[in-house]
């Protein structure tokens, strides 16, 4: 019988990121590392300049599209359900349901099992496989929407509200603020599922990642660049752009743009108001409060480590579930959770 090594003796937060000592690698390092294991392609998790990178093929494709040669020295792809040995650690990958390529990292060492979930959500997403719960001793969770006020509604209903507004305002362009990676492609797929067959206009900053999704087999239907489009083509159209473009001079080319934002933050009216959003859509790629707490039960982890977001409430609620919980306070993550 072997002694179980307590996880905090071999995996710990450092200023550079989460460090796994017996394998000498970092998970989602914030500064270039010799060996990086990356959960998913969002910029606050996948950064350029690492000497070697282990990630899913989807994540590596995103990193190559964003960083080119700076994506990393050697890039090693791994599939969901597969694992490799790094030093004295077994490193497995399981779907996280967040964006294309997103993965939970399953670490086994010294008889204990730690799951670093990265960012995740629990509901269906037509652009990536669903989250698969992995039972573990320690579950490392995000807390982007770690407050009970965050309960995301059914996404199809939110898309129906968008289409209702387009129908009522045929002379206006609906400018939807979306993150370039994940939210953009999910909203497009949801629109297609709701029967919107017309070309969808996309801001130049979104085009490249849409192409990555298409290559990965996610069909997005007809997309058109906003640049060069005539104002009369844009009236009654749906235009996707990064959230910053909502308030930008860029939007002036659109006929009577109606500001829409698709984000979990839109649950808070004052947030929507603050950002000048006229039609807030609550669509998120992060777990909401019930999903976070439900996931703790599904993975049945006696111990929860909370990384970035609203840690205090989640630590408290995990405690009410009878789990040991603590905040890791990793630096370099957006409080607003980035994407």
């Amino acid at each position: 019988m072997t002694m179980r090594m307590r996880p905090e003796t071999w995996i710990r937060p450092t200023p550079q990121g989460l460090y796994v000592e017996p394998g000498d690698f970092f998970i989602d390092p914030v500064r270039p590392a010799a060996r990086a294991v990356v959960t998913h392609g969002h910029a606050d998790h996948a950064r350029p300049g690492n000497e070697s990178v282990l990630a899913t093929a989807g994540t590596l494709a995103i990193m190559r599209a964003r960083y080119g040669a700076a994506a990393g020295g050697t890039l090693q792809a791994i599939g969901y359900g597969q694992s490799v040995r790094i030093g004295d650690v077994t490193v497995g990958f399981a779907p996280a349901g967040h964006v294309l390529g997103s993965a939970q990292i399953v670490l086994e060492h010294g008889g204990s099992r730690v799951v670093v979930s990265g960012d995740y959500k629990r509901r269906r997403d037509p652009t990536c496989p669903p989250f698969e719960p992995q039972s573990c001793d320690v579950f490392v969770t995000e807390a982007t929407f770690g407050l009970p006020v965050f309960v995301h509604p059914v996404d199809a209903d939110e898309i129906a509200r968008l289409l209702g507004s387009v129908h009522r305002n045929p002379e206006r362009a609906h400018l939807v603020g979306v993150y370039a990676l994940g939210k953009c492609q999910r909203v497009i797929r949801l629109l297609r599922e709701a029967g919107w067959d017309a070309p969808i206009f996309v801001h130049g900053a979104l085009a490249e990642l849409c192409a990555v999704y298409e290559q990965a087999g996610v069909a997005l239907g007809p997309l058109r660049a906003v640049a060069g489009a005539e104002p009369r083509d844009l009236a009654g159209a749906i235009v996707l752009a990064p959230p910053s473009a909502l308030a930008d001079r860029w939007s002036r080319r659109l006929p009577e743009p109606l500001a829409v934002a698709a984000s979990g933050w839109m649950r808070i009216r004052q947030r929507a108001r603050q950002r000048g959003v006229e039609l807030p859509l609550v669509i998120s790629d992060h777990a909401d409060w019930p999903e976070l707490l439900g996931t703790f039960a599904d993975v049945d982890a006696p111990e929860i480590w909370v990384t970035h977001g609203q840690e205090d409430a989640l630590v408290h609620a995990a405690g009410l579930q009878g789990r040991r919980a603590r905040a890791l306070r990793l630096i370099g993550r957006d409080e607003d959770g980035g994407p």
Binding site: V149, I268, Q270, H316
Partner: peptide, 11 residues
């Protein structure tokens, strides 16, 4: 506790 943290956040 959850109410206080939420109120602080929502404002």
């Amino acid at each position: 506790v959850l109410f206080a943290l939420s109120y602080d956040y929502v404002g």
